[in-house]
Design a protein around this nucleic acid. Structure first.
Lengths: 206, 206, 206, 206
DNA sequence: GATGAATGAGGATTCATTCAT
DNA sequence: AATGAATGAATCCTCATTCAT
């Protein structure tokens, strides 16, 4: 039993090592340009050993992506839950999101790239999983906005669209940051919030 | 002279045929999973014939992408120029953008995917060209917003961030539409505009 | 009739142009690396036109090689026939040979390379023709040596081997000249003759 | 350690097997007409396996050529060193040379062909290596002749040209033997030596 | 006759995956 | 369990040759 646990721990440890190396290389060269041999070498294993941990290249890639994505949303949602009130939670949402992206640029680039997402896979593909994560996060934001609506902080209209809008504004700042980095993303947090909350119209203008 | 023209026309025609077939297949399967033989067969040519029109797979892909992207922004900017006033132009911007995306879902999917964008290419790569198109379009929107600012329609703050914001809101609606289609994108135009102009905060709320 | 002649003359002229261009390019890049399109362009013809003059690439190559080879031996043998006596003829043989090689280095390189010589051709291949030319030339030299024997200039032993020997001595000087050029080949003529006539042994040594 | 040695030995063994098969096929069909698949099949490997031993077709070819060439000159020079005196060494030179050629006709044919020798390669190409081997061998013969000169066996003139001459005489006998085999090359050894030492002129003739 | 676009067979090379050791 | 050599299918691209104009 003791032994089993150690084995299990070692297995986990190795698996994580591989995932971390894989992330770096995939991020650098994309799914197709990365070879299994490369990942193995980088992680200090033999090529064949990767297949003890993952079913194949796609599986390795998908696992890496979903685990990271899960981590991302977990972190963001944890940060939000630490916010005192709804405006604070909103700020936490944006800033923790940007923080994660900035600290994991390589991964984020991969995500945007969307490579390796097989379209015609039989069963629940990576694509579906990614969508699910996104939709769940939209729901999460939706709920946050509904809170705000209850508290009369936000308009009482299409909250889902509002959630999309926030995701969108963030997305584009992230996108531009990936494409043409100009200073830290963190500086953009107030702008994003302002844009989201007040729009661009002058007060009172229709 | 007459003859030359006909030849030239035929050449153009064939080239376009190939680009159109290529777009479909690339969109369906991604850059790497698509073979030249497949495109050729689909377009009714022999494999080798593609190389009379394009230097290789990358060239074919890049050409298709940039020509389409150019067309997209040309159409949008033309639609905007037909708008009567700034609000009308803004509406034209969003609705023509959504219209193009809806009519060219395949292409848009590819664009989002961003595959085939070589990272370490020596010279001006496809990636750079795409960024340029985007930045140019951001500039275009920026100018439009500045007009609005002059006319006291918009706040006089960071117009570039405003442009990002609009692009972002549109992006996410497009993204969700690609991922999980629910009705026509065109219906979202008013929502996008409202969100962009007024934000989500209640009037007078900070 | 007049017209036919002109046609015929033009045909010959074009054919020769092609052969000359082909020689240059083949010599520069070898048989396999040279394309028909390249030869055609260089000669100012369309690709397809070459097939009016030659059956294909091999035929073009073989024709060029044999015509040139024929020219080479014709020139040499003509030079020999202008020699006054046997020693003079021998000198003419070596010097005209070296002269031709020096003036046609490109061709000579090709000849040494022996590329494009198909081994398993059904009918009389290029290889066989080249061998025939060589053997004929060996015969020619053989006869010359026999003359010398009659005139008590040469030993009365294996004249064929003597012919080989002369060809060989010349060959190696040509070979070294191709590989590592050092001054004109023409300067080596006396050395070759001396080597051939007297050998390297000291007079009287056995 | 034991294991490493066995692996190493096996690797060497397989590599040699491939080189031997490659030599046969290249000799039969030339560089360009030979396919990697063919060599692999012939050696009992899968196509891809060749690339574990050699970087590519050119590398395989060049390796085969240089290893064999090295072996050839090594053998010849070893045979010479076993000769008692200078005349004996000279005889050993010619006879071991002819012996090697006769036992490795396939290889020799390839060498004469000179195919696969890229002309415009950036770095030290196969061609350069072959030339170096030849020049080194010429040097070797040169030294042998100088010994003979010291011992008053040979004339005291251009020893380098004498070396060329010997190589040339041997070359042509080899060449003729390749082109039109007539009996064993070994029989020609005395003729070659005689030709080299005494020339064709009658004693005392100029 | 001349053209040159279209053809499509052919080949070097890569790499995910397997499996004997 | 770990290894990494062997596999062989898969793909891009070239180019001799043909043939409609």
């Amino acid at each position: 039993m003791e032994k089993l646990k150690r084995k299990e721990r070692e297995f986990r440890f190795r698996r994580t090592e591989i995932l971390e190396e894989a992330e770096k290389i995939f991020a650098l060269k994309g799914f197709h340009e990365t070879t299994m041999a490369e990942i193995a070498r980088s992680a200090g294993f033999a090529t064949g050993s990767l297949y003890q941990f993952f079913e194949g290249k796609e599986d390795l890639y998908a696992t890496m992506m979903t685990e990271k994505l899960s981590l991302m949303f977990t972190e963001i949602e944890a940060a939000v839950s630490r916010g005192r009130d709804t405006p604070g939670k909103l700020r936490a949402l944006v800033s923790s999101h940007f923080k994660f992206v900035e600290e994991n640029m390589d991964f984020y680039r991969l995500l945007v790239r969307g490579e390796g997402i097989s379209y015609s896979d039989g069963h629940s593909s990576l694509k579906d999983q990614i969508i699910r994560y996104f939709l769940d996060h939209v729901d999460f934001i939706d709920k946050l906005i509904r809170e705000g609506v209850k508290q009369k902080l936000f308009k009482n209209t299409n909250t889902r669209a509002m959630a999309y809008s926030l995701m969108g504004i963030m997305s584009f700042f992230k996108f531009m940051s990936v494409m043409k980095p100009e200073g830290s993303l963190m500086k953009k947090v107030p702008i994003v919030l302002d844009m989201f909350l007040k729009g661009v119209g002058r007060d009172g203008a229709s």
